[in-house]
Design a protein around this nucleic acid. Structure first.
Lengths: 195, 195
DNA sequence: CGTGAAACGGGGTATGCCTCCGGATCATTA
DNA sequence: TAATGATCCGGAGGCATACCCCGTTTCACG
């Protein structure tokens, strides 16, 4: 895509340096203070003017997309491990846990993802869609084996995982309530077909 | 509590007037723009300086407590209707729906409630506790009738209702996905005792 | 009415988002 | 290596919100 018809100039080195530095600092700040961390502070710590930050990432969500894509690679290994499992129901359950944990990397991450899920031209939407397709993959296999009810969709489970991760909250909730909520959800989607 | 040992002066009439006006305007603004509506705007529309608003309600949550307590009366009628139901399982399900709808009165309400649920000295915490006790009431009856699994608590279901309401989101999600998520949860808590 | 306790309100500080535009920087070409 | 112009930078500034300080007003009481 870069070498289009007309000759194109190489990107300036300071630009790529700044972009990378911004991403590193943002990762740290988001991890420490959640997705609502001050972008001014990110720019400051990156040794960059705020305009530079906004030029590279017009919105907070654009920054999130990049950060999440970085982390996705790590999740891929989980996927591959799960795909080898004999029991498709267990694989689906494992995938749901992986999803929920992924949403926990930054405090407050479920919010933007849910909103992107609703809005149309949100850069995070494609990230969501990728996860939903993965979920459909595992769900479909489980459904074929009778290990999951037929009247749910990947979208539903994606939203459910998002909600579970949201419920876990930013601070430490009851230590075992996440597990119980997970069990609640599982006996829902792993149960009989009854409506 | 008012007429303590020493004589106490009657509250100034402008004070009670302002307080009431602030509450009315806040109700409108929260309903229109969600729980994050500008408090400055509320004060302005109430014809009051911002300091007066903060004097009456030190935090946004304090305002929310008052507003929610007002609405609770309306929910009480639901409670009474549900308590008459023969099937305790249905009563529990109905209570969960009532909870979820209650959390939808203001956009973004589940967030503060979840946070109060975690923090200690949050004025909303008592509101949460009241709801949790109600939930325990319905849950206990259902459990005695074998209509609900024994390994969940009212806290769990309260959190689940909160999460469901959160998932529904501020904007219009898929029109039927809330119902499906509800079904998911129900077949979880209405299913067999299996762990 | 007079009086003082109680409440008011506007303006002040602080923080964050986002944009403008003059000026610095870098890739390219010769 | 030096000139050149496209590209990118950065800080100042406009705007919105939260929250507090303190001189002034208003009301309840006697």
């Amino acid at each position: 895509m870069s070498p289009e018809g007309a000759r194109t100039r190489r990107t300036r080195s300071d630009s790529v340096r700044n972009r990378s530095e911004i991403l590193d600092v943002a990762e740290r700040h988001f991890a420490d203070r959640g997705v609502s961390a001050s972008l001014e502070a990110v720019a400051r710590d990156a040794g960059v003017g705020s305009a530079t930050l906004y030029r590279h990432f017009p919105t907070r969500d654009a920054l999130l997309v990049e950060l999440l894509d970085r982390r996705t690679a790590q999740v891929v290994s989980d996927i591959e491990r799960l795909e080898q499992m004999a029991d498709s129901g267990e694989a689906l359950a494992g995938w749901m846990v992986a999803l929920e944990e992924f949403f926990g990397v930054f405090d407050g991450l479920p919010g933007p993802l849910r909103d992107a899920f609703l809005e149309e031209h949100n850069p995070l939407a494609s990230t969501c869609i990728g996860f939903i397709e993965r979920t459909d993959h595992f769900l479909g296999a489980a459904q074929r084996d009778g290990k999951a009810r037929a009247d749910v969709s990947g979208r539903d489970l994606f939203l459910a995982a998002l909600a579970l991760s949201w419920a876990r909250g930013s601070s430490l909730a009851g230590p075992d309530s996440p597990a119980r909520l997970r069990a609640l959800l599982r006996d829902g989607f792993a149960g009989p077909d009854a409506g």
